[in-house]
Amino acid sequence: MTTGKYPRMLVRRSKPFNPLWVAKETEKIVCDNESRKYTAFYATGVYGGIATGYAVGCCFRCFFCWSDWSRDFPELYGEFYSAEEAYRNIVKAAKKWGVRRARISACEPTLCRDHLVKLLEMIDKDDRIELFILETNGILFGVNRNYVKEISSFKKVHVRVSLKAGTPEAFSMRTGAVKEAFYLPFEAIKNLLKYNVSFHVAAMTDPRLMSENECLELIRRLREINDVVAANLEEEICDPYDTTIVRMQVYGVNPVKFFRKKLIWY
């Protein structure tokens, strides 16, 4: 495993990092036994209304990411919440906004495994929550089959694997991670299929970021694994959040030009 300087905002031509090393380093900052750092708890309109715990820490540094600055400076943001405290806050938000769905967002939820598993144990037993969306970049589910097996025991969980690219080169350029890690989210998909987990795949196929050829390559790779996964692909669009605009500028993409481009699907 490579070591080095903890990555902050992505800069073009920076040395690619090993996302497993970044995951471990991030866990040292945002996990404390069964506790994890969160910045807020409230509900939003996506997924038809969902109570959300906004947690801290990711092992990618995508230049189009919308998450708040806690992604880049996890030391400076958030407070620690035990799994039970996070669960209570999520359920409280669900009750307040009259929704029955829940998730952890703005981070990589599969970091701090003990925290996530404890939280899911409580969610699974609570009739007030009917569905838990587990949004992941697939890195840890790709390297650890047992983690996926453990998650498969929770009946309310639906996993959403978010792919960032269709080729190893594009993956490294957009996330900052080494090219070799490109294959891990695809391994995660295989593991999810193996353990019969409810899941679908999303991909940042915004044509301003991804060429038609790359998009076709991504779908080809998905079809090699499973046709249902490919047909059920959710395609994502990049939105001009404040943080996205700054990250793009720092990376060297002019956000004004980018967001003024017409969105023309292939």
């Binding site: 679908h200 249902v228 059920n232």
Partner: peptide, 25 residues
């Protein structure tokens, strides 16, 4: 998309979902 995923992990629906996915693609 969640409905499709849940049908696919149900043995009763698995083949129908795969057939529909291939037709769709």
């Amino acid at each position: 998309r969640i409905v499709i995923s849940k049908l696919y992990i149900d043995d009763k629906w698995r083949r129908a979902v795969l057939k529909a996915a291939r037709t769709y693609l």
